[in-house]
Write a protein that binds this DNA or RNA. Structure first.
Lengths: 339, 339
DNA sequence: ATGGTTGATGAAACTGGTTACATGTGTCAA
DNA sequence: TTGACACATGTAACCAGTTTCATCAACCAT
């Protein structure tokens, strides 16, 4: 039985002895090549190559105290909006030489706390979460570890964590105002599960106390296109039909749109439909969806910058409010007189 | 100047001396509590709590040689299909007590290689990539590190890496056959950028040599709903109008659908539209989209299991072919005679 | 009383890097 | 010729855990 294969990975010492130098010199070739003489450096580099040496991330981390990645906890990847946020976070973090570890929580605070623990266990230097509803274990975890953590999708300067997001209530109000401005008074509000989603709750709450006071009927469905379809069917079956449908998420609005078309209802002539989010595709739906634009990409980059600076400088970032804007397109129109 | 604040995080030794035991015992409380006497364990646990001790992931990793996370390199998060794959990978990996680090490559092999290096640098134990087009540096990286790496979205048993995916060419063929079976002969094929996307290329190639030989016209647009709309406009402006549109991605099909409706063309009466992917929302579009179902969720779980077993057991997994199925819905109909 | 076994614990080596400090050599101005 | 200084390199401590092996007491059967 020959033993040619050095079944164990080479380490710094192996490289050093192969190159005939000390470990310090090898380390210098990695971290400060300019301090090493040309000839020595070449010798070392050759030894590295011939031994197929790859530095151990863990060993480096133990010394520097840095792992260079942060974790993101999102409710789901199925909604395009979170995918968008993550995409912009990921690319922005890359500019800070940080990686992003993703975990999904399914809108469940307990699962979030558990996954957060998992992220800490593998060495996350910071955490990005969404919303303001979290388990007590989550807070005690980040406190215990003194871990930088930022909350997104929700602006609340008084919150326990720095928040970077928009005013969900105001966004919903903006949408409702657009509809009432158009003369709509009987409006169906379609939203996703409110029990598990604080953003949804905030949007619903934002509709309260509106003037003029519209006649709102609420409809809770799963947060998906299928859910929107379900809502659409429900609306058409109701005895008092609304002249407008306010969907608290573009995904739902899409479903409503498709279902109304399927049932032969023309939008916006018979019923206006409005969304909230402004997903990339919403501008291209038929009809083009009127909605409230939430700057999710921007939110991702701002949050990435904030967590990066917190991790690097230990300074807690300021909360940041991002503005949302009404985007009027073709899915809403003036209410017909005396409908 | 008092020095009450022990500005440094506590370590194992601190806990050990606080509890009046050895470091080995503290370590045992973590990893094999049953071997420690009840009373001792309690003492240690109290010390841990009062010192707010959090074990260092890096220190553990350096000993066990495990970081417990793998990296995934996807072209983009903007397409729902990758978000879906990642979601199922993430949840499946969690059952193996592995986390998922996500990086996006923008369909650029060089960027992929660079991000892969970044993932290795932070300690990824394995890599999940998509497609079969990769930079040479990528291969040399995984070879050098002897890193488990699996390719998804593309089945090719002869490939350099184990592949877990579907037969893209066959899926496209299935779609085309459905259209020709319905009597369509003049068909517009809408697809995303082919230069940078091997899956798209494979799908296009799959259409070749079909019998009966249809009259295909190709249209390349950005892979987005907006791109689909653009294609839709192009198709209506063409002098020889097709009776069916075959979109090599559901995202494009959605855009085509919306644009045709916008232009007053009825689907499928005037033009049939077909997709490929079967995204979650496709079944609820108006009209419901006929498409070819790709088992992306299943692919995610299979790939997760494969990389997990490779990482744990060092045994290279077998390639795996996942079947795709035709899903006939309402967006396609028989070609009108003598159109 | 004796030897064997089990259970709990500790001392110290070990993981794979980084880095403070020491050393040795060569250059240059005084 | 000598002291000052820069430069290249090595020695060994250090990071925060895990793990091997030794130790020692307690228990039990002989």
């Amino acid at each position: 039985m020959q033993r040619n294969t050095p079944r164990k990975r080479a380490n710094l010492r192996d490289v050093a002895s192969a190159a005939g130098v000390s470990v310090a010199t090898v380390s210098r070739v990695m971290n400060a090549p300019e301090t090493v003489a040309e000839a020595t450096r070449k010798k070392v580099e050759e030894a590295m190559n011939s031994l197929h040496w790859v530095p151990s991330a863990a060993a480096r981390a133990i010394n520097t105290g840095r792992t260079r990645f942060v974790g993101a906890l999102v409710p789901t990847l199925d909604n395009a909006i979170f995918a968008r946020v993550l995409a912009s976070m990921e690319s922005r973090l890359a500019t800070h030489r940080l990686s992003l570890v993703v975990a999904t929580t399914d809108n469940d605070p307990d699962q979030e706390a558990e996954k957060a623990k998992g992220l800490v266990d593998i060495g996350a230097e910071g955490l990005l979460v969404s919303g303001i509803t979290h388990a007590e274990e989550f807070y005690s975890l980040i406190e215990r570890c003194q871990l930088p953590a930022i909350s997104t999708s929700f602006y609340d300067p008084g919150f326990r964590l720095p928040t970077i997001g928009y005013d969900n209530a105001a966004a919903a109000r903006t949408a409702l105002t657009h509809l009432t401005d158009l003369g709509h008074r009987r409006i169906a509000v379609v939203h996703g599960p409110s029990a598990s989603n604080d953003r949804t709750r905030a949007r619903i709450d934002g509709l309260e106390g509106h003037s003029p006071k519209p006649d709102l009927s609420f409809c809770e469905v799963p947060l998906s296109i299928a859910g929107g379809c379900e809502a659409g069917r429900g609306i058409l079956q109701a005895e008092a039909q609304p002249s407008a449908v306010l969907c608290l998420s573009d995904v739902l609005a899409s479903g409503v749109l498709f279902e109304l078309q399927r049932q032969g209802v023309s939008v916006p002539q018979e019923i206006s439909v409005m969304g909230l989010d402004d997903l990339a595709g919403s501008a291209h739906l038929y009809p083009e969806l009127t909605t409230v634009h939430l700057p999710v990409s921007r939110m991702g980059t701002v949050a990435a910058d904030a967590i990066a600076s917190w991790v690097e400088t230990q300074k807690v970032p300021e909360p940041s409010l991002l503005k949302s804007d009404l985007v009027v397109r073709s899915s809403t129109a003036a209410a017909r007189q005396g409908g």
